[in-house]
């Protein structure tokens, strides 16, 4: 919950709610991009962000994203986060 996970923003889904679809290690998850949005959120598409509990909190470059993901995998946190995303999905049903 405290460590973010890198994700790549693939599509802006709702400009009013400031949400976007992110690809987090192959899992698609809707995230809020208010904290990293520039004037036009569309410029975020393709960028990498550190995502904390569904919120993109910092833009990072691709190399940093890869290094962070590797560190998270070593800590077992990457897997844990992906499981939590799946849990969140389940809770909605």
């Amino acid at each position: 919950m405290c460590l973010g996970i890198p994700g790549q923003i693939v599509e802006i889904t709702d400009t009013d709610r400031m949400t976007a679809m992110a690809d987090v290690s192959g899992v698609k998850r809707e995230v809020n991009v208010a904290c990293v949005a520039e004037a036009d959120p569309a410029t975020l598409v393709g960028r990498w962000a550190l995502i904390h509990v569904g919120f993109a909190m910092a833009l990072i470059d691709e190399a940093e994203a890869a290094a962070t993901l590797e560190a998270l995998k070593h800590l077992g946190e990457a897997q844990e986060t992906l499981e939590q995303i799946a849990e969140g999905e389940k809770a909605l049903s």
Partner: peptide
């Protein structure tokens, strides 16, 4: 329920 994000709770 366990959620990943407060956004999930709002969606619920």
């Amino acid at each position: 329920r366990t959620v990943y994000s407060p956004l999930d709770a709002l969606e619920l």
